[in-house]
Design a protein around this nucleic acid. Sequence first.
RNA 1: GCGCCGCUAGCUCAACUGGUUAGAGCAACAGACUCUUAAUCUGUAGGUUCAGGGUUCGAGUCCCUGGCGGCGUACCA
Length: 514
Amino acid sequence: MSEDLLGSGAASEAGAHDERTRRLEKVEALRAAGIDPYPVRFDRTTDAGALRARFGHLEPGTETDEEVAIAGRVLLLRRQGRLSFATIRDGSGAIQLFVSEGEIGAERHTEFDGFDLGDWIGVEGTVMTTRKGELSIKVRGFRLLAKALRPLPDKWHGLSDTDTRFRQRYVDLVVNEDARRVFAVRFAVLAAIREYLAGRGFVEVETPVLHDQAGGAAARPFLTHHNALDMDLVLRIALELHLKRLIVAGFDRVFEIGRVFRNEGLSTRHNPEFTMLELYEAFVDYGEMMTLTEELVAHCARTATGSTVVDLDGAPLELAPPWRRLTLRDAIREHAGVDVHPSMPVADVRALCDRLDVPYEASWGSGKLMLEIYEKTTEHRVRGPVFILDYPREVSPLARVHRDDPLLTERFEVIIGGRELANAFSELNDPIDQRERFEAQAGLAAAGDEEAHGVDEDYLRAMEYGLPPTGGLGIGVDRLVMLLAGVSSIREVILFPQLRPESPSGGADGDGGA
RNA sequence: GCGCCGCUAGCUCAACUGGUUAGAGCAACAGACUCUUAAUCUGUAGGUUCAGGGUUCGAGUCCCUGGCGGCGUACCA
């Protein structure tokens, strides 16, 4: 009978076949002996972390009367004749099992030794420490909770092949301590953001992922289709326009932490779906957004890592406020040695681009050229943290015109380690101005710019009901986590990053975009 | 998209300038062992060297095509 079992699943992975076969035979043997290898539940009384917290300071060689039941995955087995040690781990940490033949008898001890690395087991016994002081559970009873059929990777080296690590993240997280650490940082950052914003009166909301029109950012969207309505939809590329509708509705402070989707290339800094934090606060301008940003990031750093100092490219970087504030114009002056302003004639700015070796397109105005000069000469050299202020109006269709300069907007980006971490502005709340900006964007779209989008009439209608003065902020959560966890690839902070399909099937995937 | 680099046992890695039967640790299997902790010790088994083609007396190694990945670059308000 076992032949059928063996033939079916493992055929494609001949290498693992022997080990898998062996374990399948154990499953059959257990069933034959009336033992369910996949029982329905196990009632544990504690976990490894709680035991460590409570008994972590027991003297070596201590025996207690504390009876516990605990469950975990077998990670290490040290069989030593009539005494066995095992290390199991649950969600809170690892703990050692002390399994003595004198305690449970030869037959049960042999059964215990039949467990394989990777199996889930539940045990009961008493808390003790070994002579060397290792906190352990002296096992009185045990049972298999789930038989693992596949062997875990090398217990010391773990998995190193990045492809396998990302495709089989469930294995990566079992065997690679650093992967677990990075995601612990991520989850702490998310909790810290919510805690900080809740403390300041922000309400967390959820807005649609399926949009009938892309907007709120410059990016190519993913396309999809709703069958019942027979209409094409796009996956959102930003949270912005719905959140500002909610400010119109009368929410003073809202935020959303949500997935956005951009149909772009993959890199160490880009995944096609990623997590944005966007927040909007009525009656304030981008000045308050700066204060909020530096406090929020410092709070996240403290909560998730215990310090406001992170390692950036091998050197410490202080994230505690206040951060330097520098206008875009001054930043360019500082790093590129030229003075640019959107009021300059296009020909003059083009001449500067030529001099600085910055490529450009004929359709670009002075504002876009200015931004391009910044991005090519300055941004990647800024270590930060620094607020870069006052971007050209031409490249900021949702930001309010600067109070002192009609060609600029009240907008800032946060740069840390040469990368954009946040983007914020005093929101544009003049519906007439907004319509003009949308129409300019629509013109670009009509001219072939696939990242520009058309006029969002419903958003304009909302604005016509009155959007109060508002400050808005967007933070790339994945990049924030990268910074705080000290990793250089966005794939390290996304549980299941986008990869090519595993099987080289005869792909009918000519153009993924459409 | 383009360029460079990589892919060897289940896992982590070796294999000189193209040269004998592709090696080692972990995992596995058989055995010893009641305070180990990457347990240790003895023995055994385990390979389509990513795939396909080519050059050569001889290919893990050189060439071509393809697959997957990494890095860089392009793209990325």
